[in-house]
């Protein structure tokens, strides 16, 4: 990646002010997304995947959330510093997001068509004049989008309320919504976790298809290494708010470098097969109200050493692989 990336999260740290103290959810995260790339973020529950993703669009509620350090560069512009008005022009139009649970992410008291048209109309003021649409045209465009995500009977569904649609259909509506502003980047936060297995496959197919058709760059958050193998070309492994490994999918599966990644893969013997449980590693997650200095995995790591008291930087150890671990020396070998 010699070219400058489309999106670049740099030394990003975010904390939550809670009743019990400062909860250091994200620590020194570095993630790059190149144009046209499909990046997976994996890690067990609570490791900060969603918070990282929401931070890109400034959707982490503040208070309690607070960015402590770092930058999120999009086309060279730092989104951490961007105004709310500027973010509105980015949300949906440059960077769009879909979420985990289609059941709760649609407003129950408006028709799906109404919500879709609202989104399309909200984008109007940020589009050049010649592209602006009347509400009528927005309606036609909405139905076109619903057709694009293969929602059956889009004209009828347009007038239905969310509770009248199945989970898979709602996720299609949300995808149509996210893509209606023709964004460059799509962030999908566990888009299939809440769905039935058969529906999961359909939605994943759809995302794969749209990625190709629209030339999207994608960040796909998941628990499921099978999904990563299917849709991504690169993957970032997070543990407890830190990035521990960043590699091409092939390198990660062939040769996992970080002890945590190794444990993770050991828990899923066949990468092609999905598994809800990621962690077969003994021990507990660190308390982020008072996190250990350095690597947060050290207490569970069989290879921990004195140096782990300080976090290792992400170090290139192969053509498509970087790892944040002191096991790997200057020459890139353990």
């Amino acid at each position: 990646m010699s070219e400058s990336p489309l999106l670049s999260i740099q030394d990003f740290s975010l904390e939550f002010n809670t009743f019990d103290g400062v909860y250091q959810a994200i620590a020194d995260v570095n993630i790059d997304l190149a144009k046209g790339e499909s990046l997976g973020i994996v890690g067990e529950t609570g490791c900060g995947k969603s918070v990282t993703a929401k931070s890109i669009l400034k959707l982490v509620p503040s208070p309690p959330g607070r960015v402590r350090a770092g930058r999120i560069l999009f086309n060279g512009e730092d989104l951490v510093q961007a105004s709310e008005e500027r973010m509105r022009a980015i949300r949906g139009l440059d960077i769009a997001m879909i979420f985990q649970d289609p059941m709760t992410f649609l407003n129950p008291v408006f028709t799906v068509g109404n919500q879709l048209v609202d989104v399309i109309m909200a984008h109007q003021r940020f589009l050049p004049q010649r592209e602006s649409r009347s509400r009528r045209e927005a309606r036609d465009y909405a139905i076109e989008m619903l057709r694009k995500v293969h929602l059956p009977n889009p004209e009828t569904q347009f007038h239905n309320y969310p509770h009248q649609l199945s989970g898979g259909m709602r996720q299609r509506v949300l995808i149509a919504m996210a893509l209606s502003g023709r964004p460059q980047i799509l962030i999908a936060d566990e888009p299939t976790t809440a769905l039935d297995v058969t529906i999961q496959a359909q939605i994943l197919d759809l995302i794969g298809e749209l990625m190709k058709d629209l030339g999207l760059s994608v960040i796909l958050i998941t628990h499921d290494l099978g999904v990563v193998a299917l849709l991504c070309n690169r993957v970032v492994v997070m543990y407890s708010g830190q990035v521990v490994e960043d590699a091409s999918v092939k390198a990660l599966f062939d040769n996992p470098a970080h002890p945590y990644t190794q444990g993770l893969l050991a828990a899923v013997p066949h990468p092609g097969r999905s598994s809800g449980v990621l962690s077969g590693i003994p021990g507990q997650l660190p308390n982020l109200l008072d996190p250990p200095k350095g690597c947060r995995f050290q207490a569970r790591c069989s290879k921990a050493m004195a140096a782990c008291g300080e976090m290792a930087p992400l170090k290139r150890i192969g053509k498509d692989q970087s790892v944040a671990c002191w096991l790997y020396g200057e020459d890139g070998h353990a």
């Binding site: 022009a89 949300r91 949906g92 709760t104 992410f105 407003n107 996210a178 502003g181």
Partner: peptide, 9 residues
């Protein structure tokens, strides 16, 4: 759904 509405701009 409010988070989503914000995410959609």
């Amino acid at each position: 759904y409010i988070v989503n509405a914000r995410a959609q701009g």
